[in-house]
Design a protein around this nucleic acid. Structure first.
Lengths: 121, 121
DNA sequence: ATTATTGTATTATTCACTTAGTACAATAAT
DNA sequence: ATTATTGTACTAAGTGAATAATACAATAAT
């Protein structure tokens, strides 16, 4: 994984995992890699991953079991809420940004349309 | 101005000014506030503003004149290019993010459409 | 010529993030 | 019982960002 030097690594990992949970890429109840394994996977210090996990736990998105490992919450309502929150927040920020740069919502929609119909799922 | 603790302040100021230039809020050739004044306006150390300005200069967006102050470049083509680049980059990032969260471009457009017309909520 | 304003440079200090290394605690697996 | 794997805690060191406090350099205004 490639990190942006202008944002703390533990936050970048946090956001990545958070988005994966919100998107369902990591399902509720699913087990995460161990702190040690993830630190290797991300190429960072185990302490950094530990910090990420502490933050994710304080949000209630994951929980630790002493020696079994760490798991995504089973609270699907919470996950759904996080997803909605992420989407709403990003849309707001995006539209405001486009407006500041002089684009109306019509302009934005036109740009998205011509952006190229991507493959359907 | 309120800063995000997770990104260097000098970069946040950089992006804000850069966007203002791209949006034409600060016109080509227009004078910027002095380092000292801006540091007060933003509530940060003059050194921090100085660092921002050094970065903006390395991008060619502003230039300094010894005692007159600092000005936005007269190169309108450069400014226009920066604007296009910002817009294109943000649209790409936004659409990719929405796709990751499970929204198609149609979904996104629908959300944008229902976003604007309803100022009442 | 003097003054004020501007950009610029320098040194020191504090703080958060990151890494490194080590150790301990709990429990599933053997 | 022992071992391995997991989460967790701790100390030390290095780095970049931000602040604070000065000082110097250049020139427009007076």
């Amino acid at each position: 994984m490639d990190f942006d030097t202008s944002t703390p690594i533990y936050l970048q990992i946090l956001q990545k995992i958070k988005r994966n949970i919100a998107a369902g890429k990591i399902a509720p109840g699913e087990k995460l890699g161990s702190v040690r394994d993830l630190s290797i996977e991300y190429g960072v210090n185990p302490n950094t991953v530990q910090r990420t996990m502490a933050a994710l736990e304080s949000e209630g998105l994951v929980y630790a079991e002493r020696t079994s490992g760490r798991f995504v919450t089973d609270n699907e309502a919470l996950v759904a809420g996080v997803r909605r929150s992420l989407i709403a927040g990003e849309i707001d920020a995006f539209l405001q940004s486009m407006q500041e740069l002089g684009l109306t919502e019509k302009d934005v929609i036109a740009r998205i349309v011509e952006h190229g119909p991507s493959k359907e799922n």
